[in-house]
């Protein structure tokens, strides 16, 4: 992808502790095209949220980026000085988190929080900034009168809409969304997802959408990447994902959630639990839980193309 908006290459992140370093993200590479939705799925502890925070360099100690590059529109974010970094955060790359209550300041009215973001990055006066805030609220379906409310006066769905509106305030090219609907029930989730889709069609931003819910990704993403034990183990177009998913872990995940219209087949889930990141097993991290594992799996399988636009890291499904 020569014209990628975001190109992450060979990125590794470690958490350094007394018992040693835990490698939460292990030599991860992927790209996001302009306007594309890349879905990133995995279970807790697989490294997906660490990866989300590493891209705009929001990680704090003891997390350390140990290798790689994160190129956004040609510049390596990891090389930027603090001033440049501040200028691209929010204006080119914005984030929406799982819990909007934590993302919003509880003692500031919504309007002031919008105004802060807008004024810091654009130099608009307070009155103009609040006008822009009102536009943004309308855009995501919030009554602009709500700008006078405090976050706790809004419902969960409304807060998540507000967080989305603030993320879009400066029309970023990329929005990283880390489980933005996980704390909401399905009806609200559906509303927010429709809102995101409509806004994306209108404003053209790309999304890195992180979740544990593969079925949601199959509906909203253009491409899906599956993360396990700090690595991306499979990447494929969302359209045919259900049929084409090939990695044994992905297949296990797909066989783990009951569907609303299945015919009563018994599901099994995946036996065992994810690998330790502190002292990871040699080779494929999934081998201990995998029914196809063989001696070969003690060596790390390469992440290779197994079909057009479809890559997987598994000896059994490799070419």
């Amino acid at each position: 992808m020569a014209d990628a908006l975001l190109a992450v290459e060979d990125l590794s992140v470690e958490y350094r502790g007394l018992r040693g370093a835990a490698r939460a993200v292990d030599r991860v590479s992927f790209e996001v095209a302009p306007g594309e939705v890349l879905g990133l799925a995995g279970e807790s502890g697989c490294g997906k949220s660490t990866l989300a925070l590493a891209i705009p360099r929001l990680l704090r100690a003891p997390a350390v980026i140990t290798s790689g590059s994160v190129r956004l529109g040609g510049r390596d974010i990891l090389e930027l000085d603090d001033r440049r970094l501040r200028s691209i955060r929010w204006s080119e790359i914005a984030m929406v988190f799982q819990n909007a209550m934590n993302a919003l300041n509880p003692v500031m009215r919504l309007g002031s929080q919008f105004a802060d973001v807008i004024r810091t990055h654009t130099g608009l006066g307070r009155a103009r900034a609040l006008e822009r805030a009102a536009e943004l609220c309308t855009l995501v379906g919030i009554d602009p009168a709500r700008l006078r409310s405090y976050p706790h006066e809004l419902s969960g769905g409304m807060r998540q809409r507000a967080a989305l509106a603030i993320a879009l305030a400066l029309e970023p090219k990329l929005v990283i969304m880390d489980e933005p609907t996980t704390a909401l029930d399905v009806v609200l989730q559906r509303e927010i997802m429709e809102e995101i889709t409509a806004l994306r069609e209108r404003l053209g931003f790309a999304v890195l959408f992180i979740t544990h819910d593969i079925s949601l990704l199959i509906e909203v993403a253009d491409r899906i990447a599956i993360m396990y034990g700090g690595r991306i183990v499979e990447q494929a177009p969302a359209r045919s994902f259900l049929e084409s998913a090939a990695h044994p872990y992905t297949r296990g995940l797909l066989a783990s959630f009951p569907s609303i219209d299945d015919d009563g087949e018994r599901l099994t889930g995946i036996p065992g639990s994810p690998p330790s990141l502190i002292d990871p097993p040699a080779g494929c991290g999934f081998a201990a839980r995998c029914t196809l594992a063989s001696d070969r799996c003690r060596e790390t399988p390469p992440f290779v193309e197994i079909a057009p636009a479809h890559r997987a890291a598994c000896w059994e499904v490799g070419a």
């Binding site: 279970e43 959630f257 099994t268 889930g269």
Partner: peptide, 11 residues
């Protein structure tokens, strides 16, 4: 619980 172990508890 994680998606892959939920079904085990339901079973």
């Amino acid at each position: 619980l994680d998606v892959s172990i939920r079904i085990g508890v339901l079973n």
